[in-house]
Simulated assay, not measured.
Amino acid sequence: MYHYTECGLDNVWLANGYTTKTTAYGKAVSVADADQLQALLAERVVSKPARLSGKEFRFLRVQMGISQATLAKTQGVSEQAVSLWERHGKVPKANDALMRLCYLAHAQGDEPLREAFNRVMEVERLIHQKIVATAGPKGWKSTVEEEPTERLAERPAVAT
């Protein structure tokens, strides 16, 4: 059995459906149809009776392809609150329930939900731009660039 920690959860073991290979960098593991496996794990997480752990909360957020900032805005909390929940696992009941509902709608292909998340992420992207001013022989010129921050690197587009 393989302890599948790469998904971000500590309690997942694979009985089969994976192959291991020794490389120059150590052992490498390949999981068959990883997307289907991730969806199955998300279904299990969403349907569990107990409150979500921080790792489970993060797992669902990542499965939806949204950033902490986007999730925070859509749940009416600060980005720091989402970060704390994910690190320490104390997710308030209302936010736990809202996350489960958001994931279920996302998994069923709810286009209005995906569009709403994409709009929030686009606004975040536009807010976090930097203006680069350059002095030249004919005066100043400026360009606008996205800030290469770790926060922005975590923000993948929501799959449609």
Rank of each mutant, 00 (worst) to 15 (best):
G65H: 03
E150A: 15
V45I: 12
L37V: 12
L60M: 01
E86A: 04
F117N: 03
T22F: 03
V77W: 11
P92A: 04
S53V: 01
K21F: 09
A94Q: 12
V29E: 01
F59V: 07
T19S: 13
R100S: 09
N95G: 00
E111V: 15
K21N: 11
P156H: 12
C7H: 05
A157I: 07
V77K: 07
H106P: 06
V132N: 11
Q129F: 03
E146V: 05
K93F: 02
V31A: 06
A81N: 07
L84A: 05
E6K: 10
E154G: 06
P49V: 04
A42L: 10
A24E: 14
K73Y: 08
E150M: 07
A94C: 01
N16G: 13
P112G: 03
L52P: 01
A28T: 07
A39D: 15
A42M: 08
G136H: 07
S142G: 03
A39N: 13
S142H: 10
E124M: 01
K90T: 13
K141D: 06
A159T: 14
K138P: 00
A42D: 08
A15G: 15
G8W: 03
P137L: 06
K90L: 12
H128K: 12
A39W: 08
V123Q: 14
A153W: 10
R58Q: 10
T74L: 14
W13F: 12
R155N: 12
G17S: 08
A135E: 07
L101P: 00
R155M: 15
Y2M: 06
A153F: 11
G54N: 04
H106Y: 15
K55T: 08
T143D: 10
T143F: 06
R125V: 06
P112C: 03
K90R: 11
A34Q: 14
L9I: 07
T143S: 10
H88F: 07
W140D: 01
A107M: 12
L41D: 12
Y2W: 15
T143H: 09
V31L: 08
T149V: 04
W85C: 05
A135Q: 08
H106Q: 08
Y2F: 13
G136Q: 02
M99T: 09
C7V: 14
K138D: 12
E145R: 11
E111C: 04
D10Q: 12
A94I: 07
T70Q: 09
S67N: 02
V132M: 03
Y2A: 02
A34I: 15
F57P: 02
V91L: 03
E56S: 07
L104E: 15
F57V: 01
Y103C: 04
E154P: 01
V82L: 05
P49Y: 08
N11Q: 08
Q68K: 09
K130W: 05
H88V: 05
L84C: 00
K141M: 03
V77T: 09
K138L: 07
R44M: 10
